[in-house]
Design a protein around this nucleic acid. Structure first.
Lengths: 109, 109
DNA sequence: ACTGGTAGATAGTAACACTGAATAGCGGTC
DNA sequence: GACCGCTATTCAGTGTTACTATCTACCAGT
């Protein structure tokens, strides 16, 4: 995908995953697959799990272990109020950044 | 400004500075000041210089030393073709990311 | 001399995504 | 029943990045 995207994902991957969880609860493997479908073709397996561990440590999600028919038990993550607030803050920062970049993009081309 | 913005800037600050240089040539102190005016209230002094050094090492900019009336000589940075191409790639990645997040934002609120 | 504003450089730190590998359960095939 | 492929999670190590804090340096006005 290119190095630019890799660096750009720092700080936005968290928001991306939170946004996915805001739509509905999900587990790691599922989230990774969904990101891949949406065009983030080479997001590493392990990367998403690291994000989820951080969310759990920060108390942004509730975790539930659910047995799977096909493989080891899944850890299903659900956004809690703290996570929703964190996501709101993310959107605020994101909109600000978008607005500033938009301004420069118009002026500079 | 909040930790979210700090992490979000990793990968976008480069594009931000490149976009500023695309409008017109500038030197470090000037770029920092302009960013501050545009609402990036606490971007550290040194941070921009580090970005500019990276640009120079990657060959994205041309550098010219210009004596200043008020202080030590300025290093004026000008975007070269390689830098312009790098900036184009940045915009491509950015637009992609924006599109995906927009999709999630609509579906998840 | 001293202060304040301008201008740049640098060593050390923390956070984050990636790489690569390991572990583990289940279904199907040979 | 041994192997393979798919599902699912975990973890140690690496590179990149922005921040912090500090230092050097030049000039103007007091």
């Amino acid at each position: 995908m290119g190095k630019q995207m890799t660096e750009m994902l720092k700080g936005t991957l968290e928001g991306l995953v939170l946004a996915i969880l805001a739509v509905r609860s999900a587990y790691g493997y599922e989230i990774t697959a969904r990101l891949r479908e949406q065009g983030f073709s080479d997001i590493a397996e392990g990367t998403v799990y690291a994000v989820l561990v951080r969310f759990e440590q920060k108390g942004l999600v509730d975790v539930e272990k659910v047995p799977s028919e096909k493989g080891p038990p899944r850890k299903v993550y659900t956004l809690n109020p703290a996570g929703q607030q964190y996501l709101d803050e993310f959107w605020t920062s994101w909109r600000f950044l978008t607005a500033q970049l938009e301004k420069l993009h118009e002026g500079g081309s």
